[in-house]
């Protein structure tokens, strides 16, 4: 009898990697407060490996939980590996999200890509996975339900 499973609740109630890095090598945001969710992810990169990541998120429970999970997943991974992370992997790692909440993990995946994009720009690097990537491209529209009283 809960909106979210225990893994999601744990990452929401006790999120990992909250905060900001002093001198991030890459910084990305995605979403907007108007849409109800905005995520900022910062990364520290050494020898093409993400050695630290921090997030700040304005958003609902699953947005905060997926930020925590996404940052946990990319720490220790190479840039190429981090770019391969999909929404589905984030959702699976969280043990699933209610269908209406799936867009919250799309946010995390995009914020990671935007942080890496920023790193690539600054470091003058190119990655196949970022070819033609537009950090500001909107996410798709989603079906909306209603709750009543």
């Amino acid at each position: 009898m809960a909106l979210y499973n225990d893994i999601v609740m744990e990452h929401f109630m006790n999120p990992k990697n909250v905060g900001e890095l002093e001198n991030p090598d890459g910084s990305g945001t995605y979403g907007s407060p108007v849409c109800g969710d905005m995520m900022q992810i910062q990364i520290k990169v050494e020898d093409e490996t993400i050695v630290d990541a921090k997030f700040k998120t304005f958003g609902c429970g699953s947005a905060i939980a997926s930020s925590s999970m996404a940052t946990s997943m990319i720490i220790g991974k190479t840039i190429e590996e981090a770019l391969d992370i999909t929404n589905k992997q984030i959702i699976d790692a969280l043990g699933g999200l209610p269908p209406v909440k799936v867009h919250c993990s799309v946010l995390a995946d995009r914020a990671i890509k935007n942080a890496i994009y920023d790193y690539a720009q600054k470091a003058g690097k190119t990655y196949a996975a970022l070819e033609g990537y537009d950090p500001n491209e909107d996410e798709d529209e989603h079906d909306h339900g209603d709750i009543e009283e």
């Binding site: 909106l3 979210y4 109630m13 109800g36 958003g59 609902c60 989603h142 339900g145 209603d146 709750i147």
Partner: peptide, 22 residues
């Protein structure tokens, strides 16, 4: 969610509350 965890029931005008994203 945090209030619920503390045993408090309220509702929100938030888009993200339960099933509604509007």
């Amino acid at each position: 969610l945090f209030l619920n965890h503390a045993g408090i029931s309220v509702s929100t005008g938030s888009a993200c509350s339960s099933n509604s994203l509007e």
